[in-house]
Amino acid sequence: MKLALFDFDGTLTTKDSLEEFIIFAVGKRHYYFKLIFFSPIFLLYKLKIMHNSYAKELLFRLFFHKIKESDFKALASSFSAEILNAILREDIYKKFQEHKLNGDRVIVVSASMRCWLEPWTKLESVELLSTELEFKDGEFSGRFSTLNCHGQEKLNRIQKHLNLDDYEEIYAYGDSSGDTQMLSIADKSIKV
């Protein structure tokens, strides 16, 4: 059996689904206005003073803290249905489909949120390893319930989810430094 691991944002898509989701949820005007308040955090992240996981958690807190879980998940489901197929990268999505048709085990491994990726991966009949939000008492707590599925955490999740020795050949598709560890375990790594 063969295994195919796909990063989502920038690999299967032409745009970052995180940014697209926030704009979808709050509107462009509100998004760019609130980004002004986020700019010091973004600078700390770019200077490698703040870890990307914490910066991302703060970004979600800025836009969605205390949003009702049902409202957030409804937004995520609508976003998944209305937007994700429109931002797919045609050439890599074709490879994704080929792996499925060949009977390979296909897993999307993404730092983006389960809330909007899971409806899409279910329709595609593939597995998903991703970052998850924490909801308490029916509201977003402002925190993640898992580590951000990025860099080393991608590899940790893969190794926890399956036994790599079970596969005769491993393919991995990624586009950024956040995919380096995942790409390193592949027999065939494709950086797009």
Rank of each mutant, 00 (worst) to 15 (best):
I185P: 05
P119D: 08
E134C: 07
K136L: 15
L162M: 10
G142M: 06
C115T: 13
A55R: 02
E20R: 12
L147F: 13
K188Q: 13
R114L: 12
D187S: 11
Q159P: 05
A55W: 00
D71Q: 12
S77V: 04
L5Q: 00
I185K: 06
I92A: 04
F60M: 12
L59Q: 14
M113W: 09
T131I: 00
I23V: 14
E82V: 00
L84P: 08
K56G: 08
D16C: 07
S125F: 06
L3G: 03
S17W: 07
P119N: 08
F144N: 03
F24N: 06
K48P: 10
V126H: 00
P119M: 09
L147K: 15
S80Q: 11
F21G: 05
G151L: 03
A172Q: 06
S184R: 03
G178R: 05
D16E: 12
Y32C: 10
G27D: 00
I67W: 13
Y31W: 14
I67K: 07
N85S: 14
R89H: 15
K15G: 08
N163P: 02
D187Y: 02
I190V: 15
L101K: 02
D91P: 07
L44N: 09
L43K: 11
S189R: 07
F37N: 11
E132D: 09
L3W: 04
M1G: 01
S177C: 12
Q159F: 07
R61Y: 11
L35W: 08
S80C: 12
I49W: 13
N156H: 13
I158L: 03
V126N: 00
V108T: 11
I23G: 02
K94F: 08
